[in-house]
């Protein structure tokens, strides 16, 4: 069998460890979202070349979690690598820009690709409409995005990386989704009658 590349879901201390991928077309503000999440303070020179640039300890719903964010912003055109990158992640933030319809339409492509990579019909994902501060330029109404996210069966949230609005919340939503899938996976193994969720391990 092929070697596993995914991260383990808990470290030696028993703390949960998740790898979350931030996915989306170029220019949706993925990287800004990630930087805002990783760095709590406003920073004049963000150096992304160091090992801990994308790691963070967080406490979500009172439970601590160690997060490694996989954000390959800038590598969007390396389409051949998407499968590899997606396979390593436990959960996905699918980001579009509310001022760019093309990026909203691209989400479906990512959605399908994630399910294909994970070889299952459900994976922990959150739909994120970024740049919601640019109200006057908005082309994707929140209702439209809600209807779509309902169809996909995933949570949806609007964010503004610029104004640091809902940034932490979007990641927290995703962590909950990942936890939910782990839980249902456990149940699955016990009951063995539900549909097979994505195996993360």
């Amino acid at each position: 069998m092929a070697p596993k590349e995914t991260t383990t879901n808990s470290n030696s201390n028993g703390m949960q460890e998740f790898k979350l991928a931030v996915i989306g077309g170029g220019g949706v503000g993925k990287s800004a979202l990630t930087v805002q999440f990783i760095q709590n303070i406003y920073i004049e020179e963000y150096d992304p070349t160091i090992e801990d640039s994308y790691r963070k300890h967080a406490k979500i719903d009172d439970k601590p979690v160690f997060l490694e964010i996989l954000d390959t912003a800038g590598q969007e055109e390396y389409k051949a690598l998407r499968d590899s990158y997606m396979r390593t992640a436990d959960g996905f933030l699918m980001v579009y820009s509310v001022i760019d319809r093309k990026t909203f339409e691209e989400v479906n492509e990512f959605y399908e690709q994630i399910l294909r990579v994970k070889d299952c019909d459900k994976a922990p994902m959150v739909l994120v409409g970024n740049k919601c501060d640019l109200e006057s330029e908005r082309v994707i109404r929140i209702d439209e995005a809600k209807v779509y996210s309902k169809q996909l069966g995933i949570p949806m949230i609007e964010t503004s990386a610029k104004q640091r609005l809902n940034v932490d919340e979007s990641f927290a939503l995703l962590v909950r989704e990942v936890r939910k899938s782990l839980k249902s996976s456990d149940e699955d193994q016990l009951t063995k009658k539900k549909k097979k969720p994505c195996s993360i391990l």
Binding site: G29, S31, A32, T34, V35, Q39, I43, E44, E45, Y46, D47, P48, T49, S53, D71, T72, A73, G74, Q75, Y78, L81
Partner: peptide, 15 residues
């Protein structure tokens, strides 16, 4: 790709 990601984050990570 790694350089391109670094450049993107330098660009978006600071004003």
């Amino acid at each position: 790709g790694v350089f391109l990601t670094d450049l993107t984050f330098i660009e978006d990570g600071s004003p």
